[in-house]
Write a protein that binds this DNA or RNA. Sequence first.
DNA 1: CCCTTGCATGTGATCGATCACTTTGCTTCG
DNA 2: CGAAGCAAAGTGATCGATCACATGCAAGGG
Lengths: 342, 342
Amino acid sequence: MVGGSGTAGPKRKRATIWEVARLAGVSHQTVSRYLKNDGGMKPTTKSKIDRAIAELDYHPNLIARSMRTRRTNRVAIVLPELTNFVPIPMLRGASAAAYEEGFTTDVIGLEGGEGRRAEGVLNLLASGQAEGVLSFTPLGDLGARMKGETAPVIVFGEYDDDMHSRGKLADGRPAEDIVRHLADLGHRRFLHVAGLRGWASADNRRAVYAEAVAKYGLESYGIYDGDWSVRSGYQAARELPADSGVTAVLAANDYVAIGVIRGFQDRGIRVPEDVSVFGWDDEPFGLYLRPTLSTVRSDGEALGRQAMASLLAAIRGERAMQISESKLYELVPRGSSGPPPW
Amino acid sequence: MVGGSGTAGPKRKRATIWEVARLAGVSHQTVSRYLKNDGGMKPTTKSKIDRAIAELDYHPNLIARSMRTRRTNRVAIVLPELTNFVPIPMLRGASAAAYEEGFTTDVIGLEGGEGRRAEGVLNLLASGQAEGVLSFTPLGDLGARMKGETAPVIVFGEYDDDMHSRGKLADGRPAEDIVRHLADLGHRRFLHVAGLRGWASADNRRAVYAEAVAKYGLESYGIYDGDWSVRSGYQAARELPADSGVTAVLAANDYVAIGVIRGFQDRGIRVPEDVSVFGWDDEPFGLYLRPTLSTVRSDGEALGRQAMASLLAAIRGERAMQISESKLYELVPRGSSGPPPW
DNA sequence: CCCTTGCATGTGATCGATCACTTTGCTTCG
DNA sequence: CGAAGCAAAGTGATCGATCACATGCAAGGG
């Protein structure tokens, strides 16, 4: 399992700024300036340092730099504990955004319950390792326990005081689009199989769903308290009374939708002929199921980038730029939805 | 989107070891000893320091410590660029194992192609930020470019010189179990839809598949060069000649299997009546598809732990303990496989 | 011709810990 | 009683960078 390890040499000690300076015939401070690219340096000096750095294969010691500057250029990303809910594209977007700004990311919180996770975050901040935290999972009472910390913490999907300006519950918005779309097809009575309570995205979708049903004068049979899992979708479908009158189901994500569809099928209820089902996330397999899965495509990478951008802005004490919301989501109706049976 | 940020106070400066020492009435070195838990300290001294630390809310500055000890207690985990192939349970296992040994993990490489990824890894090592690298994706020519580095790099699924002792191609082994299982049911002619070349796990499964077919005196129609995606499975099934004689397909993973099944279904070929299909990974949705998906359950978390354990051992210059292989995989035949049509 | 001005560069202090070595203080035993 | 022996605690150097400030040197003004 071990791949290549350095086979070379006598454990050459890493060169320091002093050695570069000596070889280039300048002072350490001049080398430091060179590294910071201060501008204002005689070209001859510059090239001497250039050569010395190349010859010694010098790389700045980032630890030492951090120590002096008191900046670590590291942010922590907190992921949820449960297997299936890790939003990889978001993670990738967030990570890339951080990387582009010269930050490295520390992914933590994959272990332990919510309490321990909060503990870990606190430690990370307290020990000065991270300049900020981006969490993709609820942190519980962390807020209350951070009295002393000044580093920003952002929980994905939760909003700051500025929320009005960008639309509250933004990442639940497409729930309204789904409801409207289904209502246009003739559906009147809905069910929502929600994600785990406490998750901003679940709570947002839940809220927007309820809002939308009211807004368009429709009926909601209810909201099933799911947990993002395939199983919870299956159970919701199995437990729905035969006389519920529901003809359209909004599932919290594509996995839940799979469960819902299978649950109906096992009861002899056809999808989409008898009931329409919408998923969320446009997982790549949705196109290959029978029926193909109606869903919401979200630009997870962009969402991740945006979340990280907010965090980095907060770290710098600035305000984050907003990406136009309209580009982030797109309704993708496919085979699992259609007109109601009548 | 911004959650709580510290609302408290005048940006209280973090306490140092000196302040603790002064408050406790001892020297800084004594406090350092306390932190290292050297043993051998008068209980009275200990409790004085205890109190001082609590009062000042002191947390050691890990950067400063790293600088002096020249140990960062950080390892890098390199993830693949493509969306679907991130082995979350492995990531979790690896991360947890690192955490338990006092290491933090730096997740990188989510951006850029293979070249840039290798670049990133090199930077990380060169700047002294990471003590080792665990990659879940091939690193290409990285090995050649690490001439000077002494930090260990482990690529998941690739083996060191010690491979004989634990069974070469270990993580492809279950492919043989699948073949044997299907042969016992009466199948004689197989197809393997492989994962992306270059990936150790894909290559291992490929090799073990070929070996097994030969070993049991069976026939392989061939190996389809897939890329882990649902689509590649679909294409493989669509492109299979009607007279291929294949009655059993081994897919590289569950997603590929979904594609294969749908591909057959779209041609009017029934699964499992006409063709048996096996997936790999036991994704949670497999139980809810029609037909339910035959697959291989692997203990991803344990695999991740083991990989990280190897890395940590390498960092310490030790040899890693091996987990018994038998516990890591389990064949799970379900609805998508059965006897051949005759 | 001297002094100001500004750019390029050098000197020494500093970040917060640990390391290597020294000192203090108490036991113990010949 | 004195010195060895040992545990506990202290002193100063050090890791590798940046920061704050000082200095050298050439150009320009009075």
